[in-house]
Amino acid sequence: MEFDVVQGDIAAQSADALVNAAGTSLRMGSGVAGALRRTAGDEINEDAMERGPVELGTVAVTDAYDLGAEYVIHAAAMAHYGDENATAESIRDATRNALEKADDLECRSIVLPALGCGVAGFDLTEGAELIGEEIEAYEPETLEEVRLIAYSDEEYDVIRAATGKADESETTEESESNR
């Protein structure tokens, strides 16, 4: 399974499944959820809320509507907005459950954000390390490509460093320049 870190707007990505950084209520407010809702349309929020609330660390699936995907996997790495911050356990569980659900849906590609970081209050470096570890440890059935997405330049650099992807690209650049 290929694993990479990319930069951009998750709502502009194309993949079989996009992962929403959800709270347990599944209400799509701001951050990643807001970006997905603005592109997909308000129906995705209604659809998601009909499937909630969910337990911390679990996932729910909706149609992707106007997004470039077939599914949106809503991964609840944090409690309902403002109730409490994400934890290492909730981030690991939400990541693993999102990957498993993608396999259950026979997805070949998935894009996920830094679950539990941002509005959920978890440290981005530590969160990216946890997510990267879960991705690296996961043994896929159908998944072939996992992209961990960062919105800003700063997030991109932090996530790449935390997941070891910065080292890989430097090694690739060095070997290409030595040719």
Rank of each mutant, 00 (worst) to 15 (best):
M1W: 02
M1H: 01
V6N: 04
G8R: 09
A11N: 11
A11W: 10
S14C: 11
N20P: 05
G23P: 12
G23A: 14
T24H: 05
S25C: 09
S25G: 09
G29W: 02
S30T: 14
V32I: 15
A33V: 10
R37K: 15
G41P: 04
I44H: 02
E46L: 13
D47G: 06
A48H: 05
E50A: 15
E50R: 13
R51T: 09
R51Y: 09
G52S: 05
P53F: 05
V54W: 02
T58N: 13
T58K: 13
T58I: 03
V59M: 04
V61T: 13
T62H: 07
D66I: 01
G68K: 10
V72F: 10
M78L: 13
A79T: 02
D83T: 15
E84V: 08
R92I: 11
D93N: 14
R96L: 14
N97G: 00
L99H: 00
E100I: 09
K101E: 15
A102K: 04
D104P: 00
D104H: 05
R108F: 03
A114H: 01
G116P: 07
C117W: 03
G118P: 08
V119A: 13
G121E: 07
D123M: 05
L124E: 11
T125D: 15
E126W: 00
A128H: 08
E129S: 12
G132P: 00
I135K: 05
Y138Q: 08
E139P: 02
E139A: 14
E141T: 13
L143H: 05
L143M: 11
V146P: 10
V146D: 01
R147G: 02
L148S: 05
E155C: 02
Y156E: 03
Y156T: 01
I159N: 01
A166C: 03
E168T: 09
E170W: 05
E173Y: 04
E173T: 13
